[in-house]
Design a protein around this nucleic acid. Sequence first.
DNA 1: TGTACATCAGTGAACGCGCGTTCACTGATGTAC
DNA 2: TGTACATCAGTGAACGCGCGTTCACTGATGTAC
Lengths: 238, 238
Amino acid sequence: MALVKPVIAQGKTLLIRAALKLAMKTRSIRALGVREIGREAGLNPNTFYRHFSSMDELGLAILNEVIRSLRVPLREMRRTAADSIAGEVPAVRVPAEYWTTSLKKTRLVARETINLYFEFVLKNPEAFTIGVTELTGSSPMLREALQGTITDLAADLAEDIRILQLLPMVSDDSVQRISRIVIREIFMLSVDYIERVEAREEIRELAYFFLINLVAGTIAMEVSDNDTLATLMATLRG
Amino acid sequence: MALVKPVIAQGKTLLIRAALKLAMKTRSIRALGVREIGREAGLNPNTFYRHFSSMDELGLAILNEVIRSLRVPLREMRRTAADSIAGEVPAVRVPAEYWTTSLKKTRLVARETINLYFEFVLKNPEAFTIGVTELTGSSPMLREALQGTITDLAADLAEDIRILQLLPMVSDDSVQRISRIVIREIFMLSVDYIERVEAREEIRELAYFFLINLVAGTIAMEVSDNDTLATLMATLRG
DNA sequence: TGTACATCAGTGAACGCGCGTTCACTGATGTAC
DNA sequence: TGTACATCAGTGAACGCGCGTTCACTGATGTAC
């Protein structure tokens, strides 16, 4: 019983790796050349055609590699952050008190997630650099794929916020919106983070500032009871 | 007394226009070809060399065109919005009351500015599209130039906020940060706004949501007097 | 178990094409005296 | 005011080069009987 196609052709992975490396430098998948990639991979120029029928096909292969290396790990990361910090979700849901407890957790999870996130960025510089570049790059197909990824990541975040009960006082709709904005902004910050070594701490700080203030504002717009609001804001100030 | 170089060579402007048009389509200045631009401009391929010594030089020329068409008008726009709405800044600065008055104005200016901004975006689709693209594009020189522009725009915004006294209760440092984040995020939204005609209202709404909530959160993080905070948040909720 | 055939990843040579760039030229405008 | 010269934007032909793509080939692995 022979396995069906157990191995991915090694030339194909070589080509993808070479393209990743080159795209990281030149900041564009589309501008890569067939011969250029072959050269970098140490293969014959036309080996390319054994595996891909066009550049866009290679582009998608690269992007899938990139996307796959982002989504699942990011989600796991957030769970880890939550687990390492959170105790049990309180069973009794007396609003004011329950909310305050949640929000304490949220603050810590936010801080921890941001730290883990930027560590993760440094471990996958190609994925993030290419991701950010192609988000507004020259291939409509790749742009679309990456917009979709952002949407997915935002949906993941929103779901986690709900499941982990990090913002029980905020409407689902607002959680969705916040998630999307936060994912986008922090995603954009990633490349800066990779490149501007001296500014890393500042960038992490900015991300935290941004995240917490946006969350605080959203809560403030939705919670109209003065005492509750005062307590919640005090909690976020820490 | 003849004027010194009163006219900009018309071939040069033709080339820049052609390059703008092409870059709008292909979403990359760097990927443009000398011959391609000449063809689009209806000129001989090597007329290019009469005006530019390299593609990067053309790139900078384009970008200056783009930048020039953004900065001043944007600033004027904000002033117009403020003027059309604001009364006099109250001379007496009893905090709670003065702040509330300011914040009422802020809300209206925010809404108005966002509307004017997106109108302006639609009038300058090339500038915004190319701007957003090259912000993370493949030419380091152009990226840098655009990062600088973002910084300038953010500084303009921060200064306007200060001069117009839109956020007197927030520290200068926070105003700077908010400005930068807002400029970036709304800049990124511009391309979506141009392309996704059906989503325009939603995008404007999202921009407003984002702006107001971020501002609200920043105020909430800095104003610790409960009564004052409650009043201010009520004002922002509108 | 052995033989014949098919499939597949990779090679090397060759193609025609469009590219960037250079050169020598033109004709219009500006400048010196 | 007129003449001679310089400058400048634009032309057209020509170059060599690297590109994408195709073709016929090779040798290894898988499959049928």
